[in-house]
Amino acid sequence: MAKETGRKIIARNKKARHDYLILDTYECGIVLTGTEVKSLRQGRASLADGFAQVDGGEVWLHHVHIPEYAQGTWTNHSARRKRKLLLHRAEIDRLIGKTQESGHTLVPLELYFRDGKAKVEIALAKGKREYDKRQTLREKQDRREAERVIAAVRRKQRA
Protein backbone atom coordinates (compact mmCIF):
# COMPACT_ATOMS: atom_id res chain seq x y z
CA MET A 1 0.00 0.00 0.00
CA ALA A 2 1.35 3.45 -0.94
CA LYS A 3 2.17 5.84 1.85
CA GLU A 4 -0.29 8.72 2.19
CA THR A 5 1.18 12.17 1.50
CA GLY A 6 -0.15 15.70 1.61
CA ARG A 7 -2.82 17.29 3.75
CA LYS A 8 -6.45 16.13 3.87
CA ILE A 9 -8.75 18.41 5.89
CA ILE A 10 -11.41 16.60 7.92
CA ALA A 11 -13.06 19.45 9.84
CA ARG A 12 -12.67 23.21 10.00
CA ASN A 13 -13.95 25.60 12.69
CA LYS A 14 -15.06 28.62 10.62
CA LYS A 15 -16.82 30.28 13.52
CA ALA A 16 -13.60 30.48 15.56
CA ARG A 17 -12.11 33.07 13.20
CA HIS A 18 -15.29 35.12 13.53
CA ASP A 19 -15.58 34.92 17.32
CA TYR A 20 -11.89 35.20 18.23
CA LEU A 21 -8.87 37.28 17.36
CA ILE A 22 -6.22 34.68 16.43
CA LEU A 23 -2.88 35.55 18.05
CA ASP A 24 -0.78 32.44 17.36
CA THR A 25 -1.30 28.95 15.89
CA TYR A 26 0.22 25.58 16.74
CA GLU A 27 0.14 22.26 14.91
CA CYS A 28 -0.34 19.38 17.36
CA GLY A 29 -0.45 15.65 17.16
CA ILE A 30 -3.48 14.07 18.77
CA VAL A 31 -3.74 10.81 20.73
CA LEU A 32 -6.57 8.73 19.25
CA THR A 33 -7.91 5.18 19.49
CA GLY A 34 -8.27 2.93 16.43
CA THR A 35 -11.99 3.50 15.94
CA GLU A 36 -11.51 7.28 16.16
CA VAL A 37 -8.96 7.17 13.34
CA LYS A 38 -11.30 5.06 11.20
CA SER A 39 -14.15 7.47 11.83
CA LEU A 40 -11.90 10.42 10.90
CA ARG A 41 -10.80 8.68 7.69
CA GLN A 42 -14.48 8.67 6.72
CA GLY A 43 -14.37 12.48 7.09
CA ARG A 44 -16.62 12.73 10.11
CA ALA A 45 -15.86 15.21 12.91
CA SER A 46 -17.03 18.50 14.37
CA LEU A 47 -14.94 21.19 16.06
CA ALA A 48 -17.88 23.51 16.77
CA ASP A 49 -17.87 23.39 20.58
CA GLY A 50 -14.25 22.38 21.03
CA PHE A 51 -11.58 24.03 23.13
CA ALA A 52 -8.16 23.09 24.47
CA GLN A 53 -6.94 23.41 28.04
CA VAL A 54 -3.58 23.08 29.76
CA ASP A 55 -3.90 20.73 32.73
CA GLY A 56 -1.00 19.35 34.75
CA GLY A 57 1.62 20.26 32.16
CA GLU A 58 -0.34 18.58 29.35
CA VAL A 59 -2.69 20.02 26.74
CA TRP A 60 -6.12 18.40 26.40
CA LEU A 61 -8.74 18.85 23.69
CA HIS A 62 -12.32 18.96 25.03
CA HIS A 63 -15.78 18.68 23.40
CA VAL A 64 -14.58 17.77 19.90
CA HIS A 65 -17.15 15.43 18.41
CA ILE A 66 -15.79 12.38 16.58
CA PRO A 67 -18.80 10.10 15.99
CA GLU A 68 -18.62 6.41 16.82
CA TYR A 69 -17.31 4.16 14.05
CA ALA A 70 -20.22 2.37 12.36
CA GLN A 71 -18.47 -1.02 12.17
CA GLY A 72 -17.02 -0.68 15.68
CA THR A 73 -17.77 -3.25 18.34
CA TRP A 74 -17.59 -2.99 22.13
CA THR A 75 -14.18 -1.32 21.63
CA ASN A 76 -15.84 1.78 20.17
CA HIS A 77 -14.90 5.16 21.65
CA SER A 78 -16.97 7.82 23.40
CA ALA A 79 -17.84 10.56 20.91
CA ARG A 80 -16.94 13.60 23.07
CA ARG A 81 -14.15 12.32 25.30
CA LYS A 82 -11.17 14.53 26.08
CA ARG A 83 -8.10 13.83 23.96
CA LYS A 84 -4.45 14.53 24.69
CA LEU A 85 -2.56 16.84 22.33
CA LEU A 86 1.11 16.30 21.56
CA LEU A 87 3.29 19.41 21.76
CA HIS A 88 6.91 20.15 22.60
CA ARG A 89 7.60 21.10 26.23
CA ALA A 90 8.69 24.63 25.24
CA GLU A 91 5.40 25.17 23.39
CA ILE A 92 3.39 23.91 26.37
CA ASP A 93 5.29 26.21 28.74
CA ARG A 94 4.61 29.16 26.43
CA LEU A 95 0.91 28.25 26.30
CA ILE A 96 0.70 27.99 30.09
CA GLY A 97 1.94 31.57 30.42
CA LYS A 98 -0.28 32.94 27.66
CA THR A 99 -3.53 31.22 28.68
CA GLN A 100 -3.25 32.57 32.23
CA GLU A 101 -3.59 36.09 30.81
CA SER A 102 -7.10 37.50 30.93
CA GLY A 103 -9.32 36.72 27.96
CA HIS A 104 -6.97 34.24 26.23
CA THR A 105 -8.06 30.73 25.29
CA LEU A 106 -7.08 27.82 23.05
CA VAL A 107 -9.48 26.95 20.23
CA PRO A 108 -9.14 24.26 17.54
CA LEU A 109 -9.16 25.65 13.99
CA GLU A 110 -8.69 22.55 11.82
CA LEU A 111 -8.52 18.78 12.13
CA TYR A 112 -6.66 17.05 9.30
CA PHE A 113 -4.40 14.23 8.21
CA ARG A 114 -0.86 15.23 7.29
CA ASP A 115 1.22 12.48 5.69
CA GLY A 116 -1.14 9.90 7.20
CA LYS A 117 -1.04 11.23 10.77
CA ALA A 118 -3.96 12.98 12.47
CA LYS A 119 -3.14 16.57 13.41
CA VAL A 120 -5.08 19.43 14.91
CA GLU A 121 -4.29 23.12 14.49
CA ILE A 122 -5.03 25.03 17.68
CA ALA A 123 -4.91 28.77 18.10
CA LEU A 124 -4.12 31.01 21.01
CA ALA A 125 -7.02 33.41 20.73
CA LYS A 126 -8.64 36.34 22.45
CA GLY A 127 -12.43 36.71 22.41
CA LYS A 128 -13.84 39.50 20.25
CA ARG A 129 -16.47 41.89 21.51
CA GLU A 130 -19.70 42.31 19.55
CA TYR A 131 -18.63 45.61 17.99
CA ASP A 132 -15.32 44.04 16.90
CA LYS A 133 -17.25 41.32 15.06
CA ARG A 134 -19.39 43.94 13.29
CA GLN A 135 -16.28 45.93 12.36
CA THR A 136 -14.62 42.82 10.90
CA LEU A 137 -17.72 42.02 8.84
CA ARG A 138 -17.91 45.62 7.60
CA GLU A 139 -14.25 45.56 6.53
CA LYS A 140 -14.77 42.24 4.74
CA GLN A 141 -17.80 43.62 2.87
CA ASP A 142 -15.91 46.80 1.93
CA ARG A 143 -13.02 44.73 0.56
CA ARG A 144 -15.42 42.60 -1.53
CA GLU A 145 -17.16 45.68 -2.88
CA ALA A 146 -13.84 47.29 -3.86
CA GLU A 147 -12.79 44.09 -5.64
CA ARG A 148 -16.09 44.03 -7.55
CA VAL A 149 -15.62 47.64 -8.68
CA ILE A 150 -12.03 46.99 -9.77
CA ALA A 151 -13.10 43.88 -11.70
CA ALA A 152 -15.90 45.84 -13.43
CA VAL A 153 -13.45 48.61 -14.44
CA ARG A 154 -11.03 46.03 -15.85
CA ARG A 155 -13.80 44.36 -17.85
CA LYS A 156 -14.76 47.75 -19.34
CA GLN A 157 -11.17 48.50 -20.29
CA ARG A 158 -10.82 45.18 -22.15
CA ALA A 159 -14.03 45.68 -24.11
Rank of each mutant, 00 (worst) to 15 (best):
G103V: 11
L32T: 02
Q53Y: 10
L61W: 13
D49Q: 15
Q157D: 11
H77W: 01
R83G: 06
R129C: 00
E58R: 13
A45L: 12
R7S: 10
L21S: 07
V37T: 10
L109A: 02
T75I: 07
R155N: 12
Q157F: 05
A125L: 03
E121P: 00
H65Q: 15
T25N: 02
F113I: 00
L21D: 06
L106S: 05
R80N: 09
V64M: 15
A146R: 14
Y20A: 01
Q71R: 10
E68N: 07
Y20Q: 03
L61N: 14
Y20F: 08
L109V: 03
R41A: 12
E145A: 12
V54A: 15
Q53V: 13
E101H: 07
L61R: 14
D24P: 01
R12M: 07
E139Y: 09
L86M: 07
P108G: 03
L87I: 01
R44D: 12
L21F: 02
E36V: 04
E147L: 03
L95R: 01
E68F: 04
R89K: 06
L106A: 08
V149K: 05
A152C: 01
K140L: 07
A48C: 15
R94D: 07
T105R: 05
K15N: 11
D24F: 02
R148D: 01
E36T: 08
L137A: 12
T35A: 11
A45M: 13
D55C: 12
H104A: 03
R94Y: 08
H104P: 00
N13E: 09
G50E: 14
A152S: 00
H65S: 14
A11V: 05
A79S: 12
H65K: 14
R134Q: 06
L87R: 02
A79N: 07
D132A: 13
R144V: 13
Q71H: 08
Q53N: 11
K14Q: 07
D93W: 00
G97Q: 05
